[in-house]
Every structure is written in C-alpha cells, then in structure tokens.
Amino acid sequence: MPWDPLTDETAADPVDGLDFAEVAPPRRRSVDEEVLDHVSGLRRYALLLIGDPDDADDLVQECLVRVIAQTRNWNGVKDVRAYLFTTLHNVFVDGHRRRRTRRTEVPIETVIADLLAPPRQQDWVELRDLVAALQLLPKEQREVVLLVGLEGMSYLEAANVLQVPVGTVMSRLSRGREALRRLTTHGSTARLRVVK
C-alpha cells in the first residue's frame, strides 16, 4: 500500500502516562535537562557527521569549550540549540583540514548498532545501510541530511546553522537524499568510493 502522507502519523510520538494534572501547568525543563538535550544532539550529530566516535567527541568538546570560554553576551543567545550547532559547524569547518584522518577500526554502522537498542533484523539492515551510505556523501550534503532528518530542523534553521541560503539547503538535501536512495537501493555501499 503506497504511503499516504495525509494519514501517516509516524512523526507523532504518543506520550504515555500524562493527564491534565501532570501537565497543567506544563513543567518547565531544568537548565540541566536542556543542556543534556543539546549535548546529546551535538554528540549524535557529530558522530554521524564524522563517522568516528573519538573525533566526534573531540569536536563536541571543542565546541563546548569555545562556547563556554568565548561567549560574552549570553543574554543575546536567543536560540541555544542553533547557537551550539552553528558553533559546532564552525569548529568543524575550522578543523576539517587539520583534523587527522584517524579512522576507527570499527565501522560507524557497527558503532551505531551497539549504541541503539537491538532493532529488528529488517530495521537493522536498513539502519546499517543508511548509516554506511551517509558516510559516502559529500560532507555538505551529509550535514543537511542530518540536521533536517536526524535533528528535525526546519530548512530555515539548518540554513542558519550552516550560514547558507535556504535554497542551498534544499538543493543539498535533494542531492544528498537522492544519493542515499541510490546507494541503499543498489545495496552496494561498500563498493562505492567516497565522493569528497
């Protein structure tokens, strides 16, 4: 049965165990929880962006150090997530040339599989192929695919993070997704060269 976006509800995560008494008035997240959310987002984005857990953690750590040490006007930080992701992007771009190409001996898809709860076999195959194929995309396309698809950013948010026009985000997304589709459809990610 073809997918019907009008009836698809996969994006909506049911919230269990809530009733009016628990959510009215809505509980405000603590700053600690908010920071944990942001750091989790930075870390998983960096992991899939770089493909190496150690390099990814280095990148996130460098980003956090830069933000903490150099931000002077905290009241001017209107959108913390965007601010952090933009800084991460800048750190990534700054360090891209000098970053050593230390490749982990464990493939990224295996790392992801270890981190996630055991998925169903079919899910696992799809996840593995997708994660492997992601690493074959040019980094500009990979960034957009991940910001939009993994982190759920709007095109405008992604454009702000990457400091490019929205149209550029859309075209990179289009090319990136189509490349992913071809790579996973033909099931030959391992034989394909990385296009940088």
């Binding site: 920071v35 992991l47 996630l116 998925p119 996840l127």
Partner: peptide
C-alpha cells in the same frame, strides 16, 4: 528518527 530516539540521551 530511530537513530535519534535511540541516542536521545547520548550526552
């Protein structure tokens, strides 16, 4: 989305 959900508290 599944990867994200699995790494919700990755930090």
């Amino acid at each position: 989305g599944k990867v994200r959900a699995g790494l919700e508290r990755y930090g």
